[in-house]
């Protein structure tokens, strides 16, 4: 059966949902969302609050910069530059879950990048961050492969991600980041 975004999202219904966005990601939307999120995490410790905010900024900007645009001819249920961002809470801690569509070439690159990040310990991640920061060329917008490294460092846990087959060379990329108080 084909991958269904809503079914995937329903898996998180058991947790307390603090914030959910589904749809087209824009710069204004990111600003508005971050405002809302700050008021939803008032119970969290200062430290956790900062981590949540930092990780959410990176995640939403990843969605903004890297999502593929789905066809708008009606051949798929979701259309355009579609993304999901969810902040939830359960007994383990806070969870930031994102989903967006990407194409095969991006999947191959991302898959390699993420498995490399997950193979590193804390100090190795720090070294990788500094190496990318100091030695690698950035794109004209200032991005350059630091986002996921930073997310992994801030969360302190391995990145939990999956690529789901969606439609004709498009994959749904899901990422779940845990922030423990």
């Amino acid at each position: 059966m084909a991958f269904d975004v809503q079914e995937w999202l329903d898996n998180y219904n058991k947790d307390e949902i603090l914030f959910l966005f589904k749809g087209e990601i824009t710069g204004t939307l990111i600003t508005d969302s971050l405002d809302k999120i700050e008021s939803k995490t008032e119970d969290a410790s200062n430290k956790a609050k900062k981590k949540i905010y930092n990780v959410l900024v990176e995640c939403m900007q990843n969605l903004f910069h890297h999502s593929s645009v789905l066809p708008t001819d009606g051949s798929t249920k979701e259309q355009g530059k579609y993304g999901i961002c969810l902040l939830s809470k359960n007994s383990v801690g806070y969870h930031i879950t994102t989903g967006n569509f990407i194409q095969k070439k991006h999947k191959d690159f991302l898959s390699k990048h993420l498995s490399h990040i997950n193979s590193l310990d804390k100090d190795e991640l720090k070294d990788l961050y500094k190496d990318i920061l100091n030695n690698q060329e950035f794109s004209e917008k200032g991005g350059g492969g630091l986002g996921m490294v930073d997310i992994s460092r801030k969360s302190g846990s391995k990145l939990d991600y999956k690529f789901h087959d969606y439609h004709k060379g498009y994959y749904f990329f899901s990422l779940n980041i845990k922030i423990v108080e």
């Binding site: 900062k50 930092n54 991005g143 350059g144 986002g147």
Partner: peptide, 8 residues
């Protein structure tokens, strides 16, 4: 706060 886009 600063994002990774600002860090460079």
């Amino acid at each position: 706060y600063f994002n990774t886009s600002s860090s460079k």
